[in-house]
């Protein structure tokens, strides 16, 4: 199956404005690695036995469905690392914080937008049927659940980036001659931190 088609079960996070301080509170951001953050995901909220991640019916489900403005706030990439380590491959939300959105794609977690109605539909179905199957098709731009076909919103640029999953740095280093040419014409009076530092 191509990377444009993803299927799995979902976890309804019935909240809006879930900022990155909730996804992984700062005091959990102490490991100097990109992995090992699964237990820190929603670190404070998981103390509450009724929190959805503590509901065994959703264990192992790989698609997180949140509301509006998911992961705004702090730039901490730990938020994506924790989501990925926990086992989520996709986050569906009505909108995302800018920095998180890019962090997610760079870490091969799919940040997928849908409409407010799409989120409501997913929350409603997942709330009553934790094993409901979700089928995402990025080519057709659809999210299918039961007999609903919901919009999968992602601009072509980011869709292609996600599907190809290329190494950004390696690609940019292929442009090194352009970077050198730019540097040679750069204003020499600009601030530096060493040598000519003020």
């Amino acid at each position: 199956m191509s990377r444009a088609q993803i299927s799995g079960c979902g976890v309804p996070l019935v909240r809006n404005n879930v900022d990155t301080d909730q996804i992984i509170p700062a005091r959990f951001c102490y490991k100097a690695q990109r992995v090992g953050h699964a237990d820190s995901l929603f670190g404070n909220w998981r103390q509450d036995p009724s929190f959805v991640l503590n509901d065994a019916r959703y264990a192992g489900n790989a698609i997180l469905v949140a509301g509006r403005e998911f992961a705004t706030g702090s730039s901490r990439e730990y938020a994506v690392w924790a989501i990925k380590d926990y086992g989520f491959k996709v986050v569906i939300a009505e909108s995302f914080g800018d920095i998180f959105y890019k962090n997610a794609i760079l870490n091969d977690v799919l940040p997928l937008k849908t409409t407010e109605q799409g989120v409501e539909t997913l929350w409603e179905i997942l709330g009553r049927d934790p094993q409901a199957s979700i089928h995402i098709d990025l080519d057709k731009e659809t999210i299918m659940i039961e007999d609903h076909v919901l919009p999968a919103i992602m601009d072509e640029h980011f869709k292609r980036k996600y599907i190809l999953n290329l190494d950004d740095i390696a690609q940019t280093l292929e442009e090194i001659e352009s970077i050198k040419a730019f540097e040679s014409s750069r204003n020499r009076h600009l601030a530096t931190t060493v040598h000519r530092g003020v």
Binding site: R76, E77, N103, I169, T172, L173, I179
Partner: peptide
Amino acid sequence: FGIGTSQVEHVLATQTLRLQ
């Protein structure tokens, strides 16, 4: 503007960012 850790790595290596 703020960036994530993967973009930090990109800037360290290339002094550039790929941006929309």
